[in-house]
Amino acid sequence: MDLSLRILAILFPMFALVGTGYFYGRRHESDMSVANRLNMDVFITALVFSALANKSFDLANYGGLALAMVIMILGSGAVGWAVARMTGIRPLTLSPTLMFNNSVNLGVPLAVLTFGPDVLPLAVVLFVVSTTLHFSLGVWLLDHHAKLGNLWMKPVVLATVAGLAVGSLGVPLWEPLALSVKMLGDISIPLALFSLGVRLTDGALHGWRVGLVGAVARPLAGMALAWAAARGLGLNAQQSKLMLLYGALPPAVMNYVFAERYHQEPDKVASIVLVGNLASVVFLPIALALVL
């Protein structure tokens, strides 16, 4: 009973904000594109910089964690490709949704709620790895002619480099400046959860069978690969638990955005994202039970 109450206490704030966004989006037609752009360019960028700059960041301590995330992403893509071949789904419809999970909207808040604020730099490392691969490898998979040279000009990538430099060198920040950046970063998580709820109102359920395949394959493959990568790389207990939790996350909403942009069956990808996020109500408690 105590474990169930703890899991409920961790998940309730997250799903409450998602639910609020969902019901608001059902009652009011809402265009969240401006809010989402602001969140990615300003608030999440501030969160990343604040999390990395406020710590003495030794890259050697996080290299194994970053590599484990890369292994999980690439391995999930291979699993998605194989499952797609077996089920008759187009590989480029299913595989990216297994590779790139909801590491921002759900991953960061879930990590903080589960392990406390000290885990934020670790969660940011996983988010940065996933985002960088999604905007590079993920885009290339859908369009081999896409120009990736502008990747390093993304605000979140620049914030990562700046945060790592400040944290690694131990450069002290003026306290009012650090507080201002932190306040901007604090906006990102609630806004991301609310926006996810609004976005889910656009999902199509007519392709629920395809959605169900992705909803089950994504967390099962992710958790198995996270466990194997953590053991193989000798990650410590906290990092191993964090990897397992991230392995259970549902597909990222950005998969739908990219599928629509590159004309890769966006209706089916929307179903995978929608059903996958709904299925997280089942898989996230399982993952929490394993790590707590």
Rank of each mutant, 00 (worst) to 15 (best):
2 D>I: 05
5 L>C: 00
7 I>P: 00
12 F>A: 09
15 F>N: 06
17 L>W: 02
23 F>I: 08
24 Y>E: 03
25 G>I: 01
29 E>A: 09
32 M>H: 09
32 M>R: 06
37 R>F: 13
37 R>P: 04
37 R>T: 14
38 L>G: 06
42 V>F: 04
43 F>Y: 06
43 F>I: 06
48 V>P: 10
48 V>A: 12
50 S>M: 07
53 A>S: 15
55 K>A: 12
60 A>N: 09
62 Y>A: 12
62 Y>T: 14
64 G>Q: 02
64 G>H: 03
66 A>M: 06
69 M>R: 06
69 M>P: 03
70 V>D: 03
73 I>W: 08
75 G>H: 08
77 G>I: 02
79 V>A: 10
83 V>L: 00
86 M>T: 07
87 T>R: 02
89 I>E: 04
93 T>R: 03
94 L>E: 15
98 L>N: 02
99 M>C: 01
101 N>Q: 11
103 S>K: 12
104 V>Y: 13
106 L>W: 05
111 A>P: 15
112 V>P: 10
116 G>T: 06
117 P>V: 09
121 P>W: 06
124 V>Y: 00
125 V>D: 13
127 F>M: 07
131 T>Q: 03
135 F>E: 07
135 F>Y: 15
140 W>L: 12
145 H>A: 12
146 A>M: 14
147 K>H: 13
147 K>S: 15
152 W>E: 01
157 V>E: 05
159 A>K: 04
159 A>V: 15
162 A>N: 01
162 A>K: 05
167 G>A: 07
168 S>H: 05
169 L>P: 07
171 V>F: 13
172 P>R: 08
172 P>C: 02
174 W>F: 14
175 E>I: 14
181 V>Q: 00
184 L>W: 02
185 G>N: 07
185 G>H: 00
188 S>L: 10
189 I>K: 03
190 P>D: 02
192 A>V: 09
195 S>W: 11
202 D>E: 15
211 G>C: 01
215 A>N: 01
218 R>F: 11
220 L>A: 14
221 A>V: 07
227 W>T: 14
229 A>V: 04
229 A>R: 01
231 R>F: 02
233 L>Y: 13
236 N>K: 03
237 A>L: 05
242 L>W: 05
247 G>M: 08
248 A>V: 11
248 A>H: 03
251 P>F: 03
252 A>K: 01
253 V>W: 06
254 M>L: 08
256 Y>G: 02
256 Y>R: 08
257 V>T: 15
262 Y>L: 00
263 H>W: 01
270 A>T: 12
273 V>M: 14
273 V>G: 13
277 N>C: 10
286 I>M: 12
287 A>W: 11
